[in-house]
Design a protein around this nucleic acid. Structure first.
Lengths: 204, 204
DNA sequence: CCTATATGTTACTGATCGGTACCAAATCAA
DNA sequence: TTGATTTGGTACCGATCAGTAACATATAGG
């Protein structure tokens, strides 16, 4: 199974051997949080979807907020795996890596079933600035942006920091745009826009 | 009072003559919805902040959802006024209009007190695709994007549709990025990025 | 003045929220 | 088999949710 670009939830991967309760809870919570929103989903609904009960949930997670943080931590981890996958697949070819990233990001942003980036969504939903999830979100986003900047630099592109910022914001915008307008919108031109911007940073 | 770029709430404009209840409710709701999130704010809290009570609230709005929709409709209206203001201020100078828009958008995205675009945030919070607010959001965003495209075309820039998409997504991204990473992030370079992208569409 | 309308107040509904106490059943290690 | 740990089930807690009924008080217009 090749890693996905992620920051959507997906997967469920019907297990041959039944998953332990903690795993089932995280899987169910991920699906519900992503599709319906964090505040819209109660712990009762999560426990039921996980085929267990609230007591078991609270034996594994000290609070709903902690469960939310873990949900986001998992997604951030998957995203890291995708970067690793790209590097392993196309070593010493940063231009190709950037192309693969752009394509994967575009597919993610234009998934009609998708609801954008779970971490960005969480930042919108959880306004309390001391929420345990906020650290996870900020660290993830900074890491994404920095990784992209390194890639742009390695690819020998002009003004790599600025280019990375442009691509980063473009993607963030595309994923939130898909939720407000829908995929029949600027976000469906994301890949083309990214290519054009990359081209404009190509050293002539 | 010059119109603001808006899609944040702000205002409060301590009225000399006391506002009627409906207005007070909308003002209070706007402030709370924007700062804390729609789902995080109960109708009781809104009524109290408006200096009235729940009954009066429900005499003016048939449900919380209807109040939310009206909250967003107002913001969309203010945004339209800003476009009108720009046109009136710099008629027959689309390049200047674009510059003013970019600058205002940049200030909006980088307001450290800001929480991004209220309409985009609502789209994230309200996953139900039949929510009465969704029409308002989609129409607003489409209108914004189209208005921007017209401006780029009038300004005689290259590939105006694509440029508008780029600027649109860049702004959407900047406003959501400010919430996840904070204003010390790519979003604080928004204006510079916008200028660079516009320049790259300048007919040589 | 009187009457109609708008607003305020209180109390309530039934549902759901996050979180817990308690005990029984299942599982697992020795 | 024994004994410890993990899980399931149920019932509960107090708080809050969106929304309403009933009644008292204003405020207006004639």
């Amino acid at each position: 199974m090749t890693p996905r670009f992620s920051t959507q939830t997906a997967e469920a991967d019907a297990a041959p051997v039944p998953m332990p309760p903690r795993e089932r809870i995280l899987t169910a919570a991920s699906d519900l949080f992503y599709r319906q929103g964090i505040r819209a989903v109660g712990v009762d609904a999560i426990a039921e979807a996980a085929g267990t009960n609230k007591m078991t949930l609270y034996r594994h997670f000290e609070s709903k907020d902690a469960l939310v943080a873990e949900y986001l931590r998992r997604l951030s981890g998957k995203s890291q795996k995708f970067w690793g996958y790209i590097e392993r697949e196309y070593p010493d070819n940063p231009r190709k890596q950037l192309g693969v990233w752009l394509e994967a990001a575009g597919q993610d942003a234009n998934d009609p079933q998708g609801r954008g980036c779970a971490l960005a969504n969480a930042a919108v939903e959880l306004a309390e600035k001391d929420h345990p999830a906020r650290r996870v979100i900020e660290e993830h986003k900074r890491a994404q942006r920095d990784r992209l900047a390194k890639l742009c630099a390695d690819a020998g592109l002009d003004q790599p920091e600025m280019l990375a910022d442009e691509l980063f914001l473009l993607l963030e915008g595309a994923r939130v745009c898909a939720q407000s307008i829908g995929t029949d919108s600027p976000c469906c031109r994301f890949v083309r826009m990214g290519e054009a911007i990359i081209a404009s940073h190509d050293k002539k």
